[in-house]
């Protein structure tokens, strides 16, 4: 099975070589370091690729790879000064096209990001998508994402960072408590249809994650921001576990298990019970849990502790009672 990985790896290396050659042609002299920074790869990867390019070429008239049929490099400059100067070029004149799939991935990505203020100019985005289609060697594959309207909250968040002032908004936490928050926006993140703002919260004096659809009445303030995006190293995960978290045991229909993946701790052990997956999840309080479980009716059941079961039962019963009252 390791066989299957190997060609993939070589394929990526080939794509890199085909992108690197036109780049080096464009820059008559460039240092290994600069090229590495531009491509975001280790310097050694550039050196190895350059060495390979320098000895490659075409079979030529004789079918013997004569000297003039090969790329060539100013070897002294390369070996002594870490500088790349190609002295002979063959076969490649220009950059390669995108594949149909590559173009489709970028086009669908642009569609997904249509709510961003950067994407507000729909004419410019349409032009960009056309360029991608025209720049592809095949028809972009038929994968698309519904475009959404520009989001006013995202535009304000961006303005807050651009002008260096704090953003203020009403925030309703999952416990149902309203607070007016003042935040230095640090990063906007999304997972599928859910959008989040991560920022320094002046009320909590810590980095917090806010759901965009729970933010109300956002306003730009006049108070300068204390933290810029570059100042704060954000943890990779959106929500960090805390020592106060509650552990709840659930039974989940296997098909629904991926929907709970974010709540299941890495070290959780899952077992099968009556065709369902019994697993542990980590929640910060039962207010969030009852919404989560009531929103997945028939596929998730809380096994314990009893207080967790009771919280869900009461929430659902109170909801059901509203239909019986009138």
């Amino acid at each position: 099975m390791a066989e299957r990985q190997a060609p993939l790896h070589a394929q990526d290396k080939l794509a890199f070589l085909l992108s690197l050659v036109p780049f080096l042609m464009e820059h008559e002299r460039i240092s290994v370091q600069q090229a590495a920074e531009h491509f975001g790869v280790p310097a050694q990867q550039i050196r190895e690729a350059v060495k390979l390019i320098a000895v490659s070429g075409i079979p030529g008239e004789t079918g013997q790879y004569q000297h003039g049929d090969l790329f060539d490099l100013a070897w002294d400059d390369f070996e002594e000064n870490d500088q790349i100067v190609l002295t002979n070029l063959v076969a490649i004149d220009d950059a390669p096209r995108f594949s149909g799939r590559e173009a489709a991935a970028l086009i669908a990505g642009l569609q997904y990001l249509s709510a961003l203020p950067e994407n507000a100019d729909r004419g410019a985005i349409a032009t960009l998508m056309t360029k991608l289609s025209r720049g592809a060697s095949g028809v972009p594959s038929q994968v698309a994402v519904e475009a959404s309207e520009s989001d006013a909250t995202l535009a304000l968040i961006r303005e807050s960072v651009a002008t260096g002032v704090q953003l203020e908004f009403d925030y309703l936490n999952a416990r149902g408590e309203h607070e007016r928050r003042r935040v230095d926006p640090l990063r906007v993140e999304s997972v599928d249809a859910d959008w989040y703002l991560r920022g320094w919260c002046h009320l909590r004096e810590a980095v917090r994650t806010f759901r965009l659809d729970r933010i109300g009445n956002p306003q730009i303030t006049t108070a300068p921001i204390a933290f810029h995006p570059a100042d704060v190293l954000l943890p990779d995960v959106l929500f960090e576990g805390s020592a106060d978290d509650l552990i709840v045991t659930l039974d989940v229909a296997p098909a629904a298990a991926p929907l709970l993946a974010d709540y299941i701790p890495d070290d959780a052990v899952s077992t099968e019970v009556n065709g369902r997956l019994r697993t542990a999840v980590r929640v910060s309080h039962y207010h969030g849990l009852k919404r989560l479980v009531a929103g997945m009716p028939g596929v998730v059941t809380v096994v314990g502790p009893p207080e967790a079961r009771r919280a869900v039962a009461e929430w659902a019963a109170a909801g059901a009672a509203r239909y019986e009252a009138d």
């Binding site: 997904y112 999304s190 995006p229």
Partner: peptide, 11 residues
């Protein structure tokens, strides 16, 4: 201006 970390997870 602002850092973005958008992600589509096809589950």
């Amino acid at each position: 201006v602002l850092g973005y970390a958008p992600r589509l997870r096809v589950r």
